[in-house]
Amino acid sequence: MIEILKAVILGIVQGITEWLPVSSTGHMILVDEFVKLNFSDTFISTFLVVIQFGSILAVLLVFFNKLNPFAPSKSDKEKKQTLNLWAKVIVAVIPSGVVGLLFEEEIDRLFFNPTTVAIALIVYGIIMIWIESRNKKPIATDFSEVSFPLALKIGLFQCLALIPGTSRSGSTIIGATLLGTSRSIAAEFSFFLAIPTMLGASLLKLVKTGFSFSGFEWAVLATGSIVAFLVSVVVIKFLMDYVKKHDFKVFGYYRIVLGIIVLMYFYFL
């Protein structure tokens, strides 16, 4: 039963930190010091990836109408716009998909350590604060104004998320706002990019492990995914409401504080 409770805790952390630009890895590396699953390393690594599937379902639920090109309520023009949005999402995920498939294991081997995570948290926190301090007027406040070249450039920024501590949502939000999108477009596009990115990562991980888990391990995996889904729904709605009235500076400051905590915990405590 204690393992189920741990799965709940990890699902909560995943659901919160996956969508806020604060680095899920930075939090997981700390949480793992206190909440360790008593399973094989193979299952644990799979669990931490596959619970993201619950977060993906949350995006599909919250933005179902916007992402559904076959919604009866949409006009032919709106359906074409939705298909166009999906095309931009696919274009944007190509860079990180290619780089991830070719170099992800090598990147994890070289950079998955507390020092890299802490530095990435702090550096990108400073960048986030700097971007928000410019007060530059966005050039894209609607997805129709996000061109395919712009989508590709945002996708290139997502490649930075392969370095632990950067944050997938953080890198895409930073990239999108730096390239001239509004905060709401940056946040939504980050959510949409997560669908093929995280779905692909989850399925690839399951295929590699051969789905060879015990009944209890599947129960733990399902618990973490369901909790991640429920928490993600709340967090996504919160962030979309938040960015309508506030900037991302608070997340930048939070990242800096978290980075310092990671450094202190692993090297001074």
Rank of each mutant, 00 (worst) to 15 (best):
A7S: 15
A7L: 11
A7E: 07
V8C: 08
I9N: 11
I12P: 02
V13C: 02
L20H: 03
P21N: 08
V22F: 03
V22N: 07
S23I: 10
S24H: 10
S24V: 07
H27F: 12
M28T: 10
L30K: 09
E33W: 04
F34G: 02
K36N: 13
K36S: 07
T42D: 13
T46M: 13
L48K: 14
V49A: 14
I51H: 07
F53C: 01
S55G: 13
I56T: 06
L60W: 04
L60E: 09
L61E: 13
L61W: 15
F64N: 15
P69R: 14
P69Q: 15
F70R: 11
P72A: 02
S73M: 05
S73C: 04
S75F: 00
W86G: 08
W86T: 07
V89P: 06
I90Q: 06
I90T: 09
A92V: 03
V93F: 14
S96Y: 05
G100D: 04
L102S: 08
L102K: 15
L102G: 08
F103I: 03
E106N: 12
E106C: 00
I107D: 08
R109A: 14
F111W: 12
N113P: 00
P114N: 11
T116P: 04
V117Y: 10
A120K: 03
I122N: 09
I122M: 14
V123P: 00
V123D: 12
G125I: 09
I127R: 09
I129P: 01
I131G: 06
E132G: 07
S133W: 00
N135R: 13
K136D: 01
K136Q: 13
K137N: 04
A140Q: 09
T141E: 11
T141N: 09
V146L: 14
S147K: 10
F148Y: 15
P149V: 07
K153C: 00
I154F: 08
L156E: 11
L156W: 08
F157Y: 09
F157W: 12
L160Q: 11
A161G: 03
L162P: 04
G165H: 09
G165Q: 10
S167Q: 12
S167F: 11
R168L: 01
S169P: 00
G170Q: 10
G170T: 04
S171A: 15
T172I: 09
T172R: 12
I173F: 07
I173T: 08
I174T: 03
T177P: 05
L178A: 13
S184F: 03
F189S: 01
F191Q: 01
A194Y: 07
A194T: 04
A194S: 15
A194E: 00
I195C: 08
L203W: 11
K208Q: 15
K208G: 06
T209K: 05
T209L: 03
T209S: 12
F211N: 13
S212Q: 15
G215M: 07
G215S: 13
F216E: 15
E217S: 08
A219Q: 12
A222N: 01
T223M: 10
T223C: 07
G224T: 06
A228H: 03
L230W: 06
V231E: 10
V234E: 05
I236S: 09
K237W: 00
F238P: 05
L239Y: 00
M240A: 01
K244M: 03
F251E: 00
G252V: 07
Y253C: 00
Y253N: 01
Y254V: 02
V257F: 13
L258F: 10
G259L: 11
G259D: 09
L263R: 04
F266M: 14
F268W: 14
L269E: 02
